[in-house]
Design a protein around this nucleic acid. Structure first.
Lengths: 336, 336
DNA sequence: CTGTTAGCGCATTCAG
DNA sequence: CTGAATGCGCTAACAG
């Protein structure tokens, strides 16, 4: 390595004490004479000492490293969650390793394994559907883990999020209350996505329980064009809907775009309801009525959970966050 | 730790060979008999062996860990870059630790130090302006680093990005070519942001060299409301501009929103030019003319650089990516 | 091609 | 309150 590589012994030498004492100071052990402590800190400063994290975590059993595996960073909702998770962890000196799975639980397993290899103390996962091997690995190794974006946890793990079934029902209820009965859904890809599945199922169940059969359930990628094309399909049908629940604001924005292009009045002819409450919801015209997803809060709470002691964690196992409808201009009562 | 904690020796025992041989197999050393190799792999499989990364990086000199410090993950442009960076690294088994600096080079230094402590082999930074201590730390420790979002590198470091001065000039040139002469800028916060500064300066310089003095240069946060308020200020002035260059598509979207609210015709009364080429540019009406920032590509190329050998890196020091104007409906020739 | 030996840098016993 | 000794799990020499 480098010549200018200072190590703990060097600090000890300069401070005139033993390595053990330096270690104590660096780990905030209170049983050190205040005067020696000062000397050590000064010496570390002078030498620009940077501890070796690998050696630390090899010797102790904690790495001060946490991991997160999310579908992608290229979606505002996950990026926002990671942003607050990272901030929360960083305040306590914990670093975050982020891996992406592209909505594939096999890739997720690989990423989790990699994180375990890196020695992370704790892991954040998205959703409640994972390979059994993934969970087994974590439990075997005693690595704390939290699911986010869901309120369903395992026996041992924790969850910070919301009930996706309820979310779907909430959307349905809102559209029903507006008097709609020709309702469709333009959801996300449900393959390997337990959250999207639960929302769709909750949405459909609520409709059915109220005597309404959804006209059509289309799946589309979480992109503007997915929404555009999906809406085209929906509105081109013999019996077009008067209300559409979209699986994401991105998709809803695409749907709105299609309507604008085709001069279909929103919400006059068709109401469009989004999901996520992204910033773009305020940019469309009309502005988007949507369901707020507490992405930032999930990240913050996940950080709190991971930073908590095992004892404290017992009281933080499942944290169900409230869902909130954000009323804006893209939805209205059914005509007549 | 855990009872089910398999280590390298255990694999060796089961495979009937020495630890050294197992190590060789695990590190793809070709000098191992193929039959033994198979046995080792099988044994590792059977025992569900997961190597201890800390021990590995303590003993060797590589951690297979890379770091990135960006201003925030809560902005699509950085999230997109991190997404492709992470994918690129992950393909080669390198994990990415992400830290955020909130556009503060002191916090950036802290994050970099933390990354150094974690033993990262390489680091990605944003922009070319950093604390000297930051660069010194990296060079002293022989940690490879790349600047992104800029084409300016240090003597030792590398850069993947574009010339921000040119970007500003390109925007100015475009508006000048459209015949505008009452031009304003609604830029991002330049404090501690060398990219924003360079773009502004390039923009202003190009105007000046063509005999035009910008009417006004306003700074606003990278949020929709910043753009809205900034545009209000601009259009409420005695001598409002006929063309506005916004520092980000988010800001431009806010500007457009203000114009819609106030029934100011875009591009009829005022042309609005964005920067970033975010997906939202296609959602506004009119759609946004903007400058494309190759975020994804910067991440991919940064990954390639970090994964390269020191020898290869010498040929990859500065990579200036071309800038591209995306012509859409929010700009038009000056009337008359 | 394979095994033996040694020690990476640190935190933790255990004495004092 | 402090120091000396020990090894965390692994890989890099070096021999064979």
């Amino acid at each position: 390595m480098d010549v200018s590589d200072t190590k703990l012994v060097d600090v000890a030498r300069r401070a005139g004490c033993s390595p053990a004492t330096v270690s104590r100071v660096l780990n905030d052990n209170p049983n050190v004479d205040i005067r020696i402590r000062e000397r050590v800190l000064q010496a570390a400063m002078d030498l620009a000492y940077v501890p070796n994290g690998s050696a630390r975590s090899l010797r102790s059993t904690k790495s001060r490293l946490a991991g997160a595996v999310i579908p992608t960073l290229d979606h505002a909702i996950y990026a926002a969650m990671m942003n607050s998770l990272q901030s929360g962890l960083s305040e306590k000196g914990v670093s975050l390793i982020i891996g992406t799975s592209a909505f594939d639980i096999d890739l997720e397993y690989d990423q989790v394994r990699l994180l375990v290899e890196r020695g992370v103390d704790a892991i954040v996962l998205v959703g409640a559907a994972h390979r059994p091997e993934t969970i087994a690995l974590l439990e075997q190794r005693n690595i704390a883990y939290v699911f986010t974006y869901t309120a369903a946890a395992t026996e041992i793990g924790a969850a910070v999020g919301f009930d996706n079934d309820k979310a779907g029902r909430m959307a349905a209820r809102y559209l029903l209350d507006l008097g709609h009965n020709r309702i469709a859904m333009l959801g996300g890809i449900t393959d390997n996505n337990d959250r999207a599945i639960a929302r769709r199922d909750g949405f459909v169940a609520e409709l059915r329980e109220n005597g309404i059969t959804p006209l059509s359930i289309i799946e589309s990628a979480y992109r503007v064009d997915g929404g555009r094309l999906g809406m085209q399909q929906l509105m081109g049908a013999d019996n077009p809907p008067t209300a559409v629940f979209c699986g994401s604001d991105i998709v809803a924005a695409g749907a709105l775009k299609y309507c604008r292009e085709e001069n279909i009045a929103v919400p006059g002819t068709v109401s469009v309801l989004g999901f996520d409450n992204l910033e773009i919801g305020e940019l469309t015209s009309p502005e988007l009525t949507t369901v707020d997803v507490p992405a930032k809060e999930m990240g913050t709470l996940a950080a709190q959970y991971l930073l908590a002691t095992p004892a404290q964690r017992l009281h933080m196992r499942v944290r169900e966050l409230p869902l909130r409808l954000v009323l804006r201009g893209s939805t209205a009562a059914a005509s007549r």
